[in-house]
Design a protein around this nucleic acid. Structure first.
Lengths: 224, 224
DNA sequence: CCACACTACATCGTATACGATTTCATACAC
DNA sequence: GTGTATGAAATCGTATACGATGTAGTGTGG
């Protein structure tokens, strides 16, 4: 059995490629996505591209105007705020729901990831730090038994990853503080703390990142 | 200026029609949505129908299998539980965020709606009660300044409305209790209670509906 | 009588082609 | 010089047509 073909549909391929490019920052916000151009580039027709763009629209990565076209969603401070706030809420809930499902192995892995993050603080590599940070959080909310909430969390992360502002690059000192907050969250989870506390702490962790960003941008903190 | 055409695209028309039918329960879960059939019925080609179905898939109202087709999403107790749980979280957060924005007029309108609900308890009309209940809650979370969260709340309501089990019809006594909980929530909002309390109360209200349903179905309550 | 292969059908996935709408540049009137 | 009308170009929206994929029904060998 030669495992043969991926057999992905062209819509799927187009979607994955565009998603990849936007997340990687190769397509700057405001960039205009023209169906025919993308189709030619992908070596397919416009119909699959169109479908891919509608999916990206549903996820909020691109904005779409009828009879005009799609552009990569612009990131202003307000959009970033709303996305982070939403993610704080759903990720907090997901982490709380996942908490009882977490095995000792899960926690050990998360702890190992946080130690990697700590080691990463020296000779700071933003891309690697962001990657490890993603994996750390995913390890904690991943066992959440409610697939809808998980889906919302993933969408939130996708949107954030599409924003260059999301990385810790531009917020001095935030990375180090973040590692400490992870430590606190891990201790609470390991002691099997009550769900509401887990939710509050996970939410607060994200809100603090948001507020650190707002402070660095000279704006007032957001309440929640 | 003759106001002329709505100029809705066919995709949009198809989407709205299918959404309407599913929400109204005209299409039972498991019903198979065939592109060509729907296209003929709508008087258009299959392409717009296809796009509409993908949108419905993204919202969770239909399930889709490549090269096989789409069916109206089946509702089992687990799906209902997950949807209600998700809605409890996002609607609670939305209500808390909206609370500071609520004007006296907003609160008065919500109170009037709850009085209508109370009056509706006699000569009980499930459809009207559900309608009023929707409007009551929308009045409270509508002013939420975060459009992403509002979108998530609307999606949750859409999914619920597509489930016949969502109505209060099958849960004896729940309607009356619900009106009382609304009253409590209104008092908290009118006294400008703190956001965390608002969130907890709004969430608890929905979780109690869920647990009443689970109890009626003979299953253990869900924790959150 | 059961299991397997094969054929026919149903349905989706995509390409191509054309009409509809918007936008931008240009020219004209004031 | 400014504002408005007009034209062409670009782009989206949809229809039709065909190929790819999955499914069910039928027949044959064991």
């Amino acid at each position: 059995m030669t495992v043969t073909a991926p057999a992905r549909s062209k819509s799927q391929q187009a979607y994955e490629l565009l998603h990849e490019r936007i997340s990687a920052g190769a397509l700057v916000p405001g960039y205009r996505l023209v169906l025919s151009t993308l189709a030619a580039e992908l070596g397919c027709s416009t119909v699959p591209v169109r479908e891919a763009i509608r999916r990206l629209q549903a996820e909020g990565l691109v904005t779409f105007e009828p009879n005009v076209g799609a552009t990569v969603a612009a990131v202003d401070a307000t959009l970033y705020l709303h996305t982070m706030q939403t993610l704080a809420i759903v990720e907090g809930a997901a982490t709380a729901l996942a908490a009882p499902q977490l095995t000792a192995a899960d926690l050990a892995q998360a702890r190992a990831l946080n130690e990697e993050l700590r080691a990463c603080l020296e000779d700071f590599d933003p891309a690697r730090f962001t990657e490890l940070n993603n994996r750390f959080h995913e390890a904690l909310y991943g066992p959440c038994p409610n697939p809808h909430i998980l889906d919302l969390v993933h969408r939130g992360w996708n949107r954030l990853n599409a924003m260059r502002a999301s990385s810790f690059t531009h917020i001095p000192g935030r990375a180090r503080q973040s590692v400490e907050e992870h430590e606190e969250l891990l201790r609470l989870l390991e002691s099997r703390g009550p769900a509401p506390e887990v939710e509050a702490l996970a939410r607060a962790h994200r809100m603090r990142t948001l507020n650190a960003y707002l402070a660095a941008a000279g704006e007032p903190p957001s309440v929640l």
